[in-house]
Amino acid sequence: MSLKRCILLCAGAFSLHLMLFPHLAFAMHIMEGFLPAKWCLFWYALYVPFLALGVAAITKGVLRDPYQKILLGFAGAFVFVLSALKLPSVTGSSSHPTGIGLGVTLFGPLPMVVVGSVALLFQALLLAHGGLTTLGANAFSMAVVGSFVAYGVHRWAKKWHASFQVSTFLAAALADLVTYAVTSLQLALAFPAVQGGVLASAERFFAIFAITQVPLAIGEGILAVLVLTFLRDYAGETVRYLLKEGASDVR
């Protein structure tokens, strides 16, 4: 089977799925049991040091102000609800925002690793989105890579004096896109193509995810700009007062 034909078949099957189940697009999370044991352990090994750094950052913050724990608990609930909201999409599917770009802007990258992981844990336990064996892989792609990409973009945009809207849009959209790229790579590493290996497989997974994830990333970027503009206009003081660890101009 040629690569082109294979991609067409995958795209066809995927579009059929979207037509049959429009309320559930193929999420960014890798489902429970999809990764072999060695890859689960590998992604956990990459993820745990970042989680430890996040926990250390939180512990330091909590020692300074014990109520930061409460702030993070509520942030976790907010991110969970945010990721359960339906994001309007032009492709016909209605997927959910990851909330990572927005979360990093408001809470900072290291706390977001912990908050994002807690939200992913509850998604896996209560909603069957993602899984616990794949939590390491999902948390690495979303809470670690997504968070640091969003943070890096913010820093970069600040250095280049980009406007608040441009930096927020780029941070949210690129965090989303990079998350999906890492997810594709994780799946490709676990399931390399018979012909062409990991690269060919990654290309196929990119192509399949791109159908929904590229428009969704743009949508999430616009959404982040709208939300932060709303917060800046109507609650700038509150946000400045309450959040001390964020990365954006909202502070």
Binding site: F74, P88, S89, L102, T238
Partner: peptide
């Protein structure tokens, strides 16, 4: 519409964020 949907969702999330902090302050 798509545009209205994004706008409404942004208001929802923004409002929810403020509500979260309101509840958090009460809890505190």
């Amino acid at each position: 519409s798509y545009r209205q949907g994004l706008q409404s969702l942004a208001f929802l999330i923004g409002g929810l964020f403020l509500y979260t902090f309101q509840v958090m302050e009460q809890f505190r």
